[in-house]
Amino acid sequence: MKSYLRILLIFILFFGFSVKSNSAEKIEYLKTDWSFKGLFGKFDRGALQRGYQVYTEVCSSCHSMKYLSYRNLAEKGGPEFSLAQAKAIAASFEVTDGPNDDGEMFTRPGKLSDKFVMPYDNVKAAQAANGGAYPPDMSVLVKARGGGVDYIYSLLQGYENPPAGMSLDDGVYYNKYMYGNKIKMANQLSDGLVEYGDGTTASVEQMSKDVTTFLMWAAEPHLESRHQMGFKAIVYLTILTILVYFSMKRIWSRIETEV
């Protein structure tokens, strides 16, 4: 048993070490309470729905979300819009379909099974419209950035005037959380930019938090069931481990050796 504790200690030290070495050049991000962190972490339904609103009204004019479908909006563990709401949301978008029997492409209202409509036809078109910078797809954006949700949350609020002596080209903005501090996206959020249906005040901070929560869900749509299953799995394993420990003690008591 003693050597097992020693092994466990090495485990912890080792991972502490490796995690620390990964985040060596970390900047201090803005902190907020994320409801989805922790053993029982769940998404805040309201935040997800508001976040979706911010995404559609603000981000989606440049940023695609190609891995999400409208049906996801009604699925368990997500924003959980009602099926009727999700259908209405889908129908509010024009989707290009086809070719039909005449060989023509046509547009029709979106269905639940459709993927989120993309703002641009292709990467080149997106670059052409944004001064050469491609607005990244947001489906897994949170997982694709070292700082994760804290980074995105901070970035959205990190626009400042550049420090004296720093000259910025046209279409380049100063952001204190961006890698290299230069970003090609202008500040998008301002107080009261969107009007929340649930009456929440749409401050920049609130919108940043909501849309980041939405992006977290977009990147990890099964996070809630992962946390629930994880807790059950660990409890189950712990109980089994204790039972096996006593069986082991019992079996080894037949010989005069300690385990």
């Binding site: 097992y4 096996v244 082991m248």
Partner: peptide, 9 residues
């Protein structure tokens, strides 16, 4: 049983 215990941990 001992390997099993360690495996569970």
């Amino acid at each position: 049983i001992k390997d099993g215990f360690a495996l569970l941990m």
